[in-house]
Amino acid sequence: MATVWRSQSAFARIFAGKSGLILNNTADLGAKLNPASISTLKKHYSNYAHSPFVRKIQEQYEFEIIKNPPEWEYVQRLLPFESIPKITPKAAYPSGWIPQKEEASNLPYFIERNKNQDLSIYLDISYRGMRKISKIKKIEGDIWLMNDDVKDFLKKRYKRYIETRVHELGKFIEVKGDYVNALNEWAYSKGF
């Protein structure tokens, strides 16, 4: 059988109808091909994207198409928000989170909230938990005045001097130590 397969006629049979595929080296092994029969158009039979479109598919199952169905409300419920929903004022916020107040804009300084309406006060832990730095970000206005107020507040609460660092260009204040909860409380009390 093997000898039959290796014969030239069998080789030509494999490539019958796929003349475009035969490489220059192999062309003379099989049946003789005139140059006109080798088309320059490439055909990638192995590539799914190059296969022709399937037309005239027989619909196997019947579907009932309902326009403006009553169930569309359930579909809309599942679709993602197009933008972050606006927060409606409530009587109480049991989670302890408070939205930003109007009166905060009257102060000489201001802390911007982030997209999730959280205060931009963070704790930075580095050196395997050896160094903890509380960071107040997105400060607008008189940052030095705010630094004095924060220092004063922390000194009154903890009854000792607490180191801070002001970065005017970066619009942030760093407080040495973990004072995130105290700072949050201070910021909420100011209305930020």
Binding site: Y61, E62, F63, E64, I65, I66, K67, N68, V75
Partner: peptide, 10 residues
């Protein structure tokens, strides 16, 4: 989603 309709199998 485009035509806002639901196709239910018959």
């Amino acid at each position: 989603l485009k035509d806002q309709c639901i196709l239910k199998p018959k």
